[in-house]
Structure formats: C-alpha cells, structure tokens
Amino acid sequence: MQIKIEKIIVEALVELSDELEDESLLKASKETRLYGASSSLDSLALVSLIADIEDRISEEFEIDIVIADEKAMSAKTSPFRDVESLTNYINEQLS
C-alpha cells in the first residue's frame, strides 16, 4: 500500500508541475520537499496538491479521506515536509 500511495503523490506532483510550469517537480521522489524553505511550492500550491491527492486516494482505495484537515495543516511537525513523510502519514490514516 505504501508504494501505491507514494506513486499517487508523485503523479499528483507531476501534474502540478505542468500547472505551475515548474520542471523541478517532474523528477519528484520520496525526498522531494513539499513545504518549507527547500520547496518550490507555496501554501496555495501545497493545499491544492493535498486536495488532489485526497481525490486520487479516494478513487484508488475507494475510501473517503481528508488529509488537509486543521490538525494536519497546523501540526508543528508537519506531515507535509516531503513525499516520504506524507506517504507515511497517509498510510497511517488508511490503516
């Protein structure tokens, strides 16, 4: 399941790269930073990405999931630091 989740996140990033015209996201991997100083995503782009991932996860696993909730989005140790942390977070939510 973890591999599927990571694949979904990377696919969403590739689509976002087209919308943002940001080629750096085309080579997204588990180390790709999603938010913070080393990321190319601003807060709007990140929220949009998360909302897209929610829809894709729902479609893939046939389960409604809310990742962009107040708790996650305000967390001091953000689950959205990078692709790997987001993958782990979603995996925990689905388990």
Partner: peptide, 11 residues
C-alpha cells in the same frame, strides 16, 4: 477556474 484554485475552493 484553474485546477489549482478550484481544488482549494471545494474546501
């Protein structure tokens, strides 16, 4: 109407 904002607007 863009994909980026329309996903957020659903919220």
């Amino acid at each position: 109407s863009s994909k980026i904002l329309s996903r957020i607007i659903k919220k």
